[in-house]
C-alpha cells in the first residue's frame, strides 16, 4: 500500500528528497493533462507542469496537512495557468482578417498542430470535437470540467479548491456536461 501524500511530504521535509519523485509520479499525468486542457498546447503544458512541481517543492515546508496535497497542487497549477494565459493574451493577434470581398472566408490560414504518432492512432475528429466543445464552455463550467476529468479531482477536492459548496460543484458539473452533451450529440450515438 502506498503512503498517503501527506506522509510523503513529511518524509521529504525530514530529508528524504528522493521521495518527491513519488509525488511527481503520482500527479504528473493528471497535472500535464489538466494544464494541456487549460493552455491547449502540449509543450507549454509540460513546461508549466515542471515549473509547478519545482515551485511546490520550494514551498513544501508551508504545506498545511489539514488540507489535501492534491488541492494545493492544483491550486498552484491553476494560478500558474491563468498567469500564463494572461501573458499569452498580450501576444495574441486576431484570427479574423478584414473581408477582402473576393469570396475568401476572412480567416487567416494557420498551420495545424503537427500530428504526433499518438494522435494519429486516435480518432482525430472526435478528439477535436471534444476539445472544441470544452473550449466553448463558459469559463466557470470549463474550469470545473477540466479539474474533474483531466485533473481527476474528486467532487470534495474541487469544492475545497474552488471554495464552493459541494452542491454547487455537483450542479455546475452537471450543467457543464449537459452543455457538452448537446454540442457533441452526433458523437454520442455509439
Amino acid at each position: 500500500m502506498q503512503p498517503p501524500d501527506e506522509d510523503l511530504v513529511a518524509s521529504i521535509l525530514g530529508g528524504e528528497r528522493r521521495l518527491f519523485e513519488q509525488l511527481v509520479g503520482r500527479y504528473q499525468g493528471r497535472l500535464v493533462n489538466y494544464l494541456y486542457r487549460m493552455l491547449r498546447n502540449e509543450e507549454d503544458a509540460h513546461d508549466l507542469a515542471q515549473e509547478v512541481f519545482v515551485k511546490i517543492y520550494g514551498a513544501l515546508d508551508r504545506f498545511d496537512p489539514r488540507y489535501r496535497f492534491s488541492t494545493w497542487l492544483f491550486r498552484v497549477a491553476q494560478n500558474a495557468a491563468i498567469d500564463k494565459i494572461r501573458k499569452r493574451r498580450l501576444k495574441l493577434v486576431s484570427l479574423h482578417r478584414p473581408d477582402t470581398g473576393d469570396g475568401d472566408s476572412g480567416q487567416w490560414e494557420l498551420p495545424g498542430n503537427e500530428p504526433t504518432p499518438y494522435s494519429q492512432a486516435r480518432n482525430v475528429e472526435r478528439g477535436t470535437a471534444i476539445r472544441q466543445a470544452i473550449d466553448d464552455l463558459p469559463w466557470e463550467y470549463r474550469e470545473l470540467i477540466t479539474l474533474r476529468h483531466y485533473g481527476e479531482l474528486s467532487y470534495d477536492e474541487i469544492a475545497q479548491l474552488k471554495e464552493m459548496p459541494l452542491g454547487t460543484v455537483k450542479n455546475k458539473l452537471f450543467r457543464g456536461r449537459q452543455m457538452l452533451k448537446e454540442k457533441l450529440e452526433d458523437y454520442l450515438t455509439d
Binding site: N33, E42, G127, I130, L184, L188, D190
Partner: peptide, 12 residues
C-alpha cells in the same frame, strides 16, 4: 458515452 469520450482524450 460522453464520460468515455472525455476520458479517452488524454495526452501521454
Amino acid at each position: 458515452s460522453l464520460h468515455r469520450m472525455i476520458d479517452e482524450d488524454q495526452i501521454p
